[in-house]
Design a protein around this nucleic acid. Structure first.
Lengths: 203, 203
DNA sequence: GTGTAATTTTGCCATTTGGTTAAACTATTT
DNA sequence: AAATAGTTTAACCAAATGGCAAAATTACAC
């Protein structure tokens, strides 16, 4: 009983994740989720009361995964070069494993912008601490003076954008050569770090 | 007749653009478009046969607008510094005027990935020419050796990402202070160019 | 003004879709 | 094995939605 129950629930969540990530909330159909899970549609409502509830379960998980743990990496004592390389490499790795995450999160946050307020309450990110560490690097003469938001946006943007814009970039710059594009994404694990460090390091 | 007809059609297109950009194809409702245009729903079908057709009209226009004319700027004889500044500034300007464009285009391309193939046929971008110009800059000792795709992705990504990720960034790094975020976006017109030039210029 | 073509509205239909209810089935307990 | 609780399915419903046909209205030509 217990293991059967859990297994069904997980099966549903797995199928729901696939469908929601691919189609979005508005495009997703409960019937399609049920089919993909190989179960009856009514079972979805038995385990999760509604489409909204089922979606919320998926979204919360996805959002947590998408948000990079910048604080953790940036607050350590390591030199800035090491920090940037560690962040870029690990974040691109995550994206390679979950390439649809960014579009999904962004799409759904546009649909219900108030959701971000709820999420903010639960989260406990501390930008101030990171900003202080960053200022220290600047004062040590390691990097130029750059505000934390700009640096963070630049770092994340450089990592994420090729995944968000994949269909366009792959089409226009790679003639829809998927293999070549995968190689391109891998290259970026070091190239993006080099790019950022060149941009911010004092020489 | 003629001016009335055109006016109605334009009214519809305007309303449709707002709704589609905000809600996406799946979330958009013909009734909502009709309401926003202040007309009867059946009129939508009179001017555009179906929801699909109406959407296509909006999407094609939006996509053209979204795609930056990199070639034009990059092929000129100006020094690389001027090129980068010109591109970044003009592209961010366009995004400031059309902040929802990126999410819309990306969202809809995920829904129908084959659309990109059709678009590619119509477009006439010539990456080779741009790549040659870039190589010239490298050989002139102005910039580091970087592949065209990486450079383009970096440039566009740095411009576009703050618009795509706005709800998240504004929430986490700006405490949902919209004014502050607008200022942040404006700052980027010069900051991003500086960042890129620092990253690629040989010193 | 009258007739004709274009435009707009009303009213409606067929399909889709999230959700519910009651029945059927399974496992567990006693 | 009988009863009970938990799980799954089949059948169905009401609301929403894209689309359509025909009537009504407007604009225009003559």
């Amino acid at each position: 009983m217990s293991e059967q129950e859990l297994s069904t629930e997980k099966t549903i969540l797995e199928a729901a994740k696939k469908v929601f990530l691919d189609k979005g909330f508005d495009g997703a159909r409960m019937q399609e989720i049920a089919d993909k899970a190989g179960i009856n549609k009514a079972l979805l409502h038995y385990y999760f009361r509604s489409k909204d509830k089922l979606f919320d379960a998926i979204f919360e998980e996805a959002f947590k995964q998408f948000l990079p743990n910048i604080s953790e990496i940036m607050i350590s004592n390591k030199p800035i070069e090491e920090k940037v390389r560690a962040f870029v490499s690990s974040y691109i790795d995550m994206l390679l494993k979950n390439p649809y995450l960014p579009v999904f999160v962004i799409r759904e946050l546009q649909r219900k912008p108030d959701a971000i307020v709820e999420i903010l309450k639960k989260s406990k990110i501390n930008p101030i601490q990171v900003a202080l560490t960053l200022k220290q690097h600047t004062e040590d003469g390691q990097i130029i003076d750059i505000s934390l938001p700009h640096l963070i946006v630049n770092m994340i943007g450089l990592c994420v954008f090729p995944f968000i814009g994949r269909p366009i970039i792959e089409g226009f710059l790679f003639n829809n050569n998927t293999e070549a594009y995968n190689a391109f994404l891998l290259e970026r694990k070091t190239l993006v770090a080099d790019f950022i460090l060149n941009a911010i390091k004092l020489k």
